[in-house]
């Protein structure tokens, strides 16, 4: 678990997308205090097992679930780290956005050259 590299899907956007679905939030709520086998997660839903598997896949690729194999069972637990990237999302969003705003405005409205800055 330690040393796992941050996948490219583990961006704040991907995490927000993963969290945007009520079924996926329900899955995270189920596993937030300890790991659960896939079957037990699926049993909590009226969805098909396949649909639940797809939700688990989205959560896994967003880095929100850790998967562990125990014999033939797959056990899932919550991984908190990506949630911290959401926390930082807006802190990063605005400075980066304003930096792009500066570039956009100054490129569209160049000042005469030779002018004192």
């Amino acid at each position: 678990m330690v040393g796992r590299t941050r996948s490219k899907n583990e961006t704040p956007d991907a995490v927000l997308r993963a969290l945007a679905d009520p079924h996926r939030r329900q899955i995270l709520r189920l596993v937030q205090h300890g790991e659960l086998p896939a079957g037990q997660i699926a049993a909590s839903f009226t969805l098909t097992q396949q649909a639940v598997s797809q939700h688990i896949g989205v959560l896994k690729s967003a880095g929100l679930l850790t998967e562990r194999r125990d014999g033939t069972r797959r056990l899932y637990s919550l991984r908190q780290e990506p949630l911290e990237s959401v926390r930082g999302l807006l802190a990063e969003l605005w400075p980066e956005a304003l930096s792009r705003l500066k570039r956009a405005v100054e490129e569209a409205h160049p000042r005469d050259s030779g002018r004192d800055a």
């Binding site: 304003l98 930096s99 000042r111």
Partner: peptide, 8 residues
């Protein structure tokens, strides 16, 4: 969150 920028 407070973000600032100087724009010409």
């Amino acid at each position: 969150v407070i973000a600032t920028e100087h724009i010409q």
